[in-house]
């Protein structure tokens, strides 16, 4: 096994030795070329995000709309419970999967559907038969309307993707402006002990593989609901 490693690394070093590549093509002028300065951070080029929290929440809401994420600002946990109970009734949900956090527990307090907790593991078929999965998250990204989840913050890898409806409960303090900030936050939080799974979720699962026509719920959740609570 180390053999392949030596072979490949030797080939790479041989290929790179005294053999400088031209810098990214200075010769090419694109027809819609603007100024092209270097040594910048992605933040300067990516979609702009306001600095204030309310601007960020508004942007997240707008992005959610385009993505078909069902985004709700909830004044109180009671509001969030009300939204959940409507969903449960509409979908005639029998079984809901979740993991234990203060917020998921509070949200499910008065709920009457059966609960599957993934905290100590689960049977795949059991989880597959649930009508919805409720999870927390690491943070919300205003810039793109994405939600960063991880194994610890979302009850493992499958809870947020296997059930047909994914509900995320989050707090306004979890809003970050952009992707860069989200990745920085993950680094700060975990240092060298990253979870094995981190995912930016940006809207419900979708496909355009048939005639490039958008269909929601290809393999993952058909619906994605975000309940945002004040701190």
């Amino acid at each position: 096994m180390s053999d392949g490693k030596t072979i490949i690394l030797n080939r790479i070093r041989e290929a790179l030795r005294e053999n400088p590549a031209p810098r990214p093509h200075a010769s090419h002028t694109s027809s819609d070329q603007e100024e092209t300065p270097r040594d910048h951070t992605p933040r300067e080029w990516l979609p702009k995000v306001g600095e204030r929290l309310d601007e960020q929440i508004d942007l997240f809401a707008r992005q959610s709309e385009g993505l078909k994420t069902e985004f709700h600002r909830c004044g109180t946990m009671e509001d969030a419970r009300a939204i959940l109970s409507v969903l449960v009734a509409e979908g005639a949900w029998k079984k809901i999967a979740t993991h234990t956090t203060p917020d998921t527990s509070a949200l499910l307090e008065k709920n009457r559907a059966e609960i599957l907790k993934t905290d100590t593991g689960y049977q795949i078929d059991d989880l597959e038969s649930c009508d919805a999965g409720i999870t927390g998250c690491e943070c919300l990204v205003a810039q793109t309307g994405a939600i960063l989840v991880s194994a610890p913050s979302a009850g493992g890898r499958a809870l947020s993707v296997l059930p047909p409806h994914h509900i995320i409960i989050a707090r306004t303090s979890q809003m970050v402006p952009d992707l860069t900030a989200a990745l920085e936050l993950a680094k700060e939080r975990y240092g060298n002990k990253f979870p094995s799974f981190l995912s930016f979720i940006t809207g419900p699962s979708r496909t355009g593989d048939i005639e490039r026509i958008l269909v929601l719920g290809a393999h993952g959740p058909k619906r994605l609901t975000v309940l945002l609570l004040e701190d």
């Binding site: 994405a146 493992g156 890898r157 094995s196 799974f197 699962s205």
Partner: peptide, 16 residues
């Protein structure tokens, strides 16, 4: 929709 980063198999303490 999904941009997922995987750093290894299930880590100690992870459930799946």
């Amino acid at each position: 929709c999904y941009n997922t980063m995987y750093g290894g198999p299930r880590q100690p303490g992870e459930i799946d």
